[in-house]
Amino acid sequence: MSNQVPLQEGLFTWPSSQPQLLGSRCSQCAEAAFPAQPDCRSCGSRDTQIIELGDRGILWTWTIQTFMPKEPYLSDETPETFRPYGVGYVEMPGGVRVEARLQANSPEQLKIGMPMQLDIVPFRTDENGEQKMTFSFSAAEKA
């Protein structure tokens, strides 16, 4: 099995049996952000802390990306192997809506208000055979 590494450090806790999205919270006004920000966009304070935003949320809006984006999109797909993917904003218990890829890729599978769960999934394999992992959401299984 190939080596798996996060596409970007600091977006989620991983590897972990129950990965969490990471963000930041302002110590002054308590607003949360994703990804973690050193400066607060709400009040301008520089006093922010890294926090776990959770691994479950509610779908706030969605769409389907039907065509393969141009660069800066960087996957290991070709126009022939490209599969449409869902994109949505998910309301996290940490108090922020996070934009993410969705596993579902047809309108029938998606509905505003549906419960979602975080998955850490392979996104592309680079030239050294390393699998780059990213975050994604799918319909939550019954808890």
């Binding site: 596409l7 984006p69 660069e71 800066p72 999109y73 960087l74 996957s75 993917y85 890829r101 990213t134």
Partner: peptide, 12 residues
């Protein structure tokens, strides 16, 4: 923004 945002196809 960081590269991952464009690379994963969220920046359209």
């Amino acid at each position: 923004l960081d590269d991952w945002y464009g690379e994963t196809g969220l920046m359209l």
